[in-house]
Structure formats: structure tokens, C-alpha cells
């Protein structure tokens, strides 16, 4: 069955078609959202939200772009919308401690674990810009539009984020690294 047929059946609410779309695209959607969130529980909430929004919006999907591209935009917007909602909420309430469990698995390489952990440690805005640019391939214009900043700010945040990542990765792989190397 083609993806177009699946989408058509999913629009009619067919359980098997919606499940099939989920199985096919969930890992990509979840990876994007998880990295933007930097936190498992937020990522789970936002992934749910992204899928509900996507299925709601299916009647508006006309096939002008790839379904995966369309879905990915919804996922990113859900994560960014989720972020704003959380910021509004935490302005009113005392912030809750957030734990970031990182489960080691057989298939994850040490490098991948280090990258994921370093991403989690970045400040939120730096992480978002780095994920959108270096992981997801967004341009600075697209990031500026998504985050409501100008492209120059996106660039500046990207360079800071890459530098911070480098420091975090170096600390993770070379705990005894000498201080003062390559600094101005």
C-alpha cells in the first residue's frame, strides 16, 4: 500500500492506517522532539501532542510536500509551542526538578551517548538552534522564523552552542585535559 493510500485511510480514522503511519514515522518524530526537549517526560508529552495535531490536520495535507516533511514541521512546532507553554507555566509556579534518565543500550555507541548527553546539558535556546541546524538541517532563516529571532542571532547561538558542545564532549572523553589549550 502506498503512503498516499495509507494517509487517505488514516483520514477516515482507520486504526490500522494510523498505526502504520505511526510505526513508520514515530522514531524520526520522537528523535527530533526528544532532542529539542532535552528531557524524556517533556518529549513524551510533546510527541503525543505532535501526533494528535498531525492526525487532526490530516484533512489539510494535500501532498504538496512529502508527508514526512509536513509531519516533521508539525513536530518541531509542537515542541516549540510546548516550550512556550512550559515557560508560561513555570513563570507562575515553582519549577519542578527535571530528571534526565539516559538509558545505556546495546546499540548506542559511546559517541552517540556522549552527544546526546552533551545536547541535554546545553542551555535551551542553544540546544534548539544546534538541533535545528546541525541535526535537522534547518537554515538560519528557517530557525529565525521558527524561534522568532533574526538569522544573525541564530548564527551567533549556533557558534556558541557548537563551542559549548565541544567543551562538554572534551570533558567527557578527556577528563584530564590540560587547561588553557586553544583559548584566547
Amino acid at each position: 500500500m502506498t503512503e498516499a493510500e495509507l494517509i487517505d485511510r488514516a483520514r477516515r480514522g482507520e486504526d490500522s492506517a494510523i498505526r502504520a503511519l505511526y510505526r513508520r514515522h514515530a522514531p524520526r518524530v520522537y528523535a527530533t522532539i526528544r532532542r529539542l526537549a532535552g528531557d524524556d517526560s517533556l518529549a513524551e508529552d510533546w510527541a503525543q501532542e505532535a501526533w494528535v495535531r498531525a492526525i487532526r490536520a490530516l484533512p489539510t495535507f494535500r501532498g504538496d510536500s512529502q508527508f514526512s516533511t509536513w509531519l516533521h514541521r508539525i513536530a518541531v512546532n509542537s515542541a516549540l509551542h510546548g516550550r512556550r507553554a512550559r515557560l508560561r507555566r513555570t513563570e507562575r509556579e515553582a519549577p519542578l526538578p527535571v530528571t534526565v534518565p539516559v538509558g545505556a543500550t546495546g546499540e548506542r555507541t559511546l559517541l552517540r551517548l556522549q552527544l546526546e548527553r552533551a545536547l541535554e546539558q546545553l542551555p535551551e535556546r542553544m540546544r534548539q538552534v544546534l538541533v535545528l541546524h546541525d541535526v535537522e538541517g534547518y537554515t538560519h532563516d528557517e530557525i529565525g522564523e521558527a524561534l522568532g529571532v533574526n538569522p544573525g542571532t541564530s548564527k551567533s547561538q549556533l557558534f556558541k552552542a557548537r563551542a559549548r558542545m565541544r567543551e562538554l564532549l572534551r570533558a567527557a572523553s578527556e577528563p584530564a585535559v590540560q587547561e588553557g589549550v586553544c583559548r584566547t
Partner: peptide
């Protein structure tokens, strides 16, 4: 390496 991070199973 960041550009080649794998997808994540939810």
C-alpha cells in the same frame, strides 16, 4: 556526528 545521529524509538 550530530548530522548522523540516529532516530530514536519512542
Amino acid at each position: 556526528d550530530l548530522a548522523h545521529l540516529p532516530d530514536l524509538e519512542p
